[in-house]
């Protein structure tokens, strides 16, 4: 069986043409990337807002987790049937596929974003406010960089889920590596089916590696842990209670904690 799969993957005939691996790779990446970008465009601002204001956590968290429970395949076919009288061409299959992928990708990005922002140590937030930063600057200059590791892990989870689930697009006649899985099953061509699964897994690993690299490049060393815990992370309850008083001495305190940890 493994030999068959390797044989299938190394057959030059499978590396060109409309049904070739490069074509389906491009389609698969395109479906997944589009879904993650759209999901991030929805979930990031919403997550930052919820995390920053602390409002709506309950409603949005419940909703986001509810979205995860939706059966993708059923939803996909429902959307195709609902939309097919109104849209012509391939869009009638692409749009529902993207909708279900976005619905899958939004919850991990959303929850990790607001959790990341909410988990920023209150002392740090207070310090920023104490320095006279506006709410927006606190969000972009302090909360966002601090939340970035968790936020990016949400993006990674969403990307993996999209790449794995983009296979359903093939169920409604589109391309991508799902084509091999769906066709292989229907044609009783199991090497083709297994090769499709291997390709999806391979793509997911590569995408994950790229996102880890992105994480390395974008997350501040101070947050990523090279300097240990960020300032004021421990005993946040006590610190929060004292925050008003501490605000005045913040520059001093920050210096102190740097010295302690380094």
């Amino acid at each position: 069986m493994i030999g068959d799969v390797v044989g299938w993957l190394t057959d030059p005939a499978h590396w060109s043409g409309v049904d070739g691996i490069p074509t389906h790779l491009f389609e698969h990446v395109w479906y997944s990337l589009l879904a993650v970008v759209v999901a991030a465009a929805i979930a990031l601002p919403l997550g930052l807002l919820i995390g920053h204001t602390g409002r709506g956590t309950f409603v949005v968290a419940g909703l986001a987790n509810g979205l995860r429970a939706l059966p993708t395949l059923g939803l996909l076919i429902l959307f195709v049937i609902l939309l097919s009288p109104h849209i012509t061409g391939t869009l009638v299959y692409l749009l529902p596929s993207e909708i279900v992928l976005v619905l899958l990708a939004v919850p991990p990005i959303l929850t990790s974003t607001y959790a990341g922002v909410q988990n920023v140590p209150p002392a740090v937030r207070d310090a920023a406010e104490g320095m006279g930063m506006t709410g927006f600057r606190v969000l972009t200059r302090v909360e966002l960089p601090c939340a970035l590791p968790l936020l990016l892990s949400g993006v990674r989870a969403a990307t993996l889920q999209c790449i794995a689930t983009a296979t359903v697009a093939a169920y409604v006649s589109l391309g991508g590596f799902g084509r091999y899985v769906v066709d292989g099953l229907a044609q009783r061509d199991f090497p083709q089916m297994a090769a499709g699964a291997v390709l999806v897994a391979g793509l997911a690993l590569v995408a994950d590696a790229l996102l880890v690299l992105l994480e390395r490049l974008t997350v501040s060393p101070g947050v990523s842990g090279r300097f240990g815990e960020p300032a004021g992370a421990g005993g946040s309850g006590r610190v929060r209670g004292m925050s008003r008083m501490v605000q005045r001495f913040l520059p001093l305190r920050t210096n102190l904690s740097r010295q302690e940890t380094s």
């Binding site: 195709v80 097919s84 009288p85 012509t88 299959y93």
Partner: peptide
């Protein structure tokens, strides 16, 4: 099934 029937009905 429904996908094929709808595609034929709606011109896909």
């Amino acid at each position: 099934g429904p996908l094929t029937v709808n595609a034929l009905k709606n011109g896909q």
